[in-house]
Design a binder for these strands. Sequence first.
DNA 1: CAAAGTAGGACTGATTTGATCGTATTTTAT
DNA 2: ATAAAATACGATCAAATCAGTCCTACTTTG
Lengths: 133, 133
Amino acid sequence: MLRLSKRVEYGLMALQYLAKSGNVATAREISDAGHIPYELLAKVMQSLKHEGIIDSYQGVRGGYAMLVAPAQINLARVMKALDEDATVTECISPGSVHEQCTLYANCTIKEPMQKLQTRMEESFGKMTIAELL
Amino acid sequence: MLRLSKRVEYGLMALQYLAKSGNVATAREISDAGHIPYELLAKVMQSLKHEGIIDSYQGVRGGYAMLVAPAQINLARVMKALDEDATVTECISPGSVHEQCTLYANCTIKEPMQKLQTRMEESFGKMTIAELL
DNA sequence: CAAAGTAGGACTGATTTGATCGTATTTTAT
DNA sequence: ATAAAATACGATCAAATCAGTCCTACTTTG
Ligand code: FES
Ligand code: FES
């Protein structure tokens, strides 16, 4: 079907780690524990912070910690934070720039794809970080 | 979330076309109608044929036609025929070669991803070609 | 003020995907 | 018979995406 990006995969592992430990952990610590490339994980953590899922503390003794209860964070939100192509097709994204898609004028599957998008969001919306523990 | 490949997009448009017309149509005809690159569409049609979704007739007056009722073909099957990466992560695919994934030994999200895979297949399994008409 | 950490831009290489080309094979119509 | 219209399929090229790395800041604690 559709393969998750490494960013999402690493993000989920990191969130699982944070949720399990319950307090602050550094990117290096998570990277070592999961054998995840450090530099890439660091970026992922920053994205998760911008989305408001985790909090960060700079400087010595700094690191990252959960900002929201694991049960309150669903996969749709994580993927939105970590992945760019958030829609099944370019047809979607209501109010966005449809002109980008060269097929738009001839696309015959706009409505069904919108329906599919909704269903997928439901699927991803139902699973939370709490289910990773 | 996750973007469908052009192959799947073209395949769905083609199946919609065939289902709507109800009889044989050539790849060129579908390509023209949908402004789809002919060579690529031709490959997509061949894949759909191998999957047993459509039938093909060679030679002059040849073309493609539905082999199964549109309501009997769900998107999961179409995607399986047209897309390679059929799983959410490499963890999945029961009985398959896990060794490929370098992370397997350290992967902490195998079970949840398996669950996610199942749910997604349900989502895609519920929508049929009949819903594209 | 030094060490440990996050913040983030820029770059490279690998991989995947879309698109194209070329040639063979099958079948109908003339 | 044979030419034309179509599928079949392998090989190749180009574009886009993604993973990974590097480098330089900024921030905070001890
Ligand atoms: S995919 Fe671009 S408009 Fe449908
Ligand atoms: S993603 Fe490879 S084992 Fe989980």
